[in-house]
């Protein structure tokens, strides 16, 4: 697939502070690309440069082939943007908010009216279109932002913490709509702190730390960074087997005990679990609970973002 966003040595300095330091990555057409990082890592600065709010100090990026420094307007024509803070015009009606963004994108009248009607209905705002945005809850304002971002029919949607602090219904609705739109070909650039959300909907994830890209890959591949931290968790009724017996199981690396729970670290948790079941059967042990555990994206994130500052989590 062709790259719709190409970031090349993008750098931003604020005085002596280098907020984003020669960052490089590509986002392919039709991809949901997650951009993760702790507070102050540089992700918002990167997004602000890509969306034209801030100028890069060095480097550049292209959006659909338009250089953000030389053809900024051309680049922005392809974007829909939902910032973290729902900055709707509070004193404009829901309808006027959507129309304003459509008009700024030059969407023809008939099309913008039709699209706005459709999107407001889809996002559950159809009956509130005459209400002032001030009267909407945080979740509804965020839905209005999404509606305003989509009314121009963008090819790339920037979502900055789109579900942060939202009620469950709004968060679920937004995630569902993003997934549906992506299925229809929309490229999504998602900035989030929510690892479960990133894991659930992102095709690839970049982790930015201290202005540098620390890792970039699919969530599954990123988890491989911590492959040694996979384990089988087991609890026995009564006394379980001795450590020496457990270490004799195939692929076993080490055993840890957490109260009643035994953690059996292994690069192949499935194989070890089968062997453990065999051992329990042979020795007449009763297994109360057995599960395999893989490191989550959150584990990888913490490992990558804490390893040079403090002891890594795993």
């Amino acid at each position: 697939m062709s790259a719709v966003i190409e970031v090349r040595s993008l750098t931003r300095r604020f005085g002596d502070l280098i907020a984003v330091d020669h960052v490089q990555f590509e986002v392919s057409e039709g991809e949901v690309f997650g951009f993760l990082g702790p507070n102050g890592a540089g992700k918002t600065t990167t997004v602000r440069m890509l969306t034209g709010v801030l100028d890069p100090t060095e480097g550049t990026a292209t959006i659909r082939g338009h250089d953000i420094r030389k053809e900024s307007l051309g680049a922005r024509e392809h974007l829909g943007i939902v910032p973290e803070q729902a900055n709707v015009y509070l004193d404009l009606s829901v309808w006027r908010n959507v129309m304003l963004m459509a008009e700024l994108h030059g969407v023809a009248r008939a099309r913008r009216v039709k699209e706005a009607e459709r999107l407001l209905g889809l996002l559950g705002l159809g009956e509130r279109k005459k209400q002032k945005a001030r009267a909407l809850s945080k979740g509804l304002r965020q839905r209005l932002m999404l509606c305003s971002a989509l009314v121009s029919g963008p090819e790339i949607l920037f979502l900055d913490e789109p579900t942060s602090g939202l009620d469950v219904q709004s968060a679920r609705l937004i995630r569902q709509i993003v997934r549906d739109l992506n299925r229809d070909g929309l490229t999504v650039f998602l900035t989030t702190h929510n690892m479960a959300e990133a894991e659930e909907i992102c095709d690839r994830v970049a982790i930015i730390h201290k202005g540098h890209i620390a890792a970039i890959d699919t969530p599954d591949q990123l988890r491989q960074i911590l492959a040694a931290n996979q384990y089988v968790e087991v609890t026995f009724e009564g006394r379980g087997p001795q450590d020496a017996e457990l270490l004799g199981l195939p692929d076993m690396q080490r055993v840890a005990r957490l109260g009643e729970r035994l953690l059996l670290y292994t690069p192949h948790p499935g194989r070890t679990a089968v062997a453990l079941a065999g051992l329990a059967d042979r020795d007449g042990l009763q297994v109360r609970d057995l599960s395999t555990r893989k490191p989550s994206l959150e584990d990888v994130f913490l490992f990558l973002t804490q390893r040079d500052g403090q002891e890594a989590t795993p």
């Binding site: 602000r48 969306t51 034209g52 709010v53 307007l73 051309g74 922005r76 024509e77 974007l79 943007i81 910032p83 803070q85 900055n87 709707v88 015009y89 509070l90 963004m101 700024l104 994108h105 030059g106």
Partner: peptide
């Protein structure tokens, strides 16, 4: 202050 300015300058209007 309302951060609506960012919406304007990130739209395709100079």
């Amino acid at each position: 202050r309302a951060r609506t300015y960012e919406r304007l300058i990130s739209s395709p209007v100079s």
